[in-house]
Simulated scan of single mutants.
Amino acid sequence: MAKYSDSFKLKIVKEYLEGPMGYRLLAKKYNVPDKAQIRIWVNAYKAFGEDGLRKKRSKTVYPVQFKLDVLNFIRQTGTSYKDTAIEFKLRNPSLIANWMRTFLIEGIEGLKEKPKGRAPMSGKRKTKQSKQEKAMSREEQLERENELLRLENAYLKKLKAFQENPNAYLEKHKQRWHSNSKKKGSN
């Protein structure tokens, strides 16, 4: 479907409202494939003025309570989707029809906003790691456990040394850092 500029839409709508030409003749004159499109523009202009013809730049997310209010209004008054859209200042009457269809099939849960996009892959990564652990032989598992215990032991020794004399520990590591940085620098 072709995209039309706001000025083009306004020109056609004004020509329809001022002149004797109908939807079909205007569609033929301006090469608009469907006369229904011009009818939609005219109705939007009548309801909202020039704002009704402008393209929306972002998607509006409506709360569930608002959707329920709209659907209850239709049930109580028996108005059409078009009249209901005008009443609630919605540009697109088919949006209400979609809400009604979803509500009848799924209930209130269907009206809630659903997350978009692909699900995170965090669950898949965990399963791969657990499969690798299962695939390791008993000897490999013991070697892995041994390595983890060595790391834990080294960490605890450093922690104890730091707690006994923090200044000496920091001075020792500070000197190491400076000696390494002198070697790497280009003088």
Rank of each mutant, 00 (worst) to 15 (best):
T77C: 06
E106R: 11
S130A: 12
S94G: 07
L111M: 05
A97T: 01
I108G: 03
L90W: 02
S130V: 11
E87I: 01
L111G: 01
A85M: 09
L71V: 13
K131F: 08
K128I: 10
T77R: 15
E113Y: 10
T79L: 14
A97M: 10
K126C: 00
P120W: 03
A119Q: 14
K89Q: 10
M100T: 02
K112S: 04
T127H: 09
N92L: 09
E109I: 02
N72I: 04
E109T: 03
S122W: 10
L90D: 05
P120M: 02
E109Q: 06
Q129Y: 13
T127F: 04
Q76M: 11
F73N: 14
K134P: 00
L90V: 13
S80C: 12
P120I: 01
R101V: 01
G123P: 00
G107K: 08
I108A: 07
A97D: 09
I108L: 02
L111W: 03
F73Y: 15
E133W: 15
N98R: 15
T77G: 12
K89Y: 07
K126V: 06
L104Q: 06
D83M: 13
F103G: 02
S122T: 15
G107N: 04
K112H: 10
K131E: 10
G78Q: 07
G107D: 05
Q132F: 12
L95V: 09
K124Y: 10
R101L: 03
K89N: 14
T77V: 05
E106M: 07
F73A: 14
R75D: 15
G117T: 06
E109L: 00
A85Y: 06
K134D: 09
P115T: 07
P115R: 12
T79K: 15
T84S: 13
L90H: 07
K82E: 05
I86Y: 10
L90N: 05
T77Q: 14
F73Q: 14
D69L: 03
E87M: 05
K134Y: 07
K89F: 01
R91N: 07
R118W: 01
T102K: 11
K89W: 02
G110I: 02
P120V: 06
D69T: 00
Y81F: 15
A97V: 01
F73S: 11
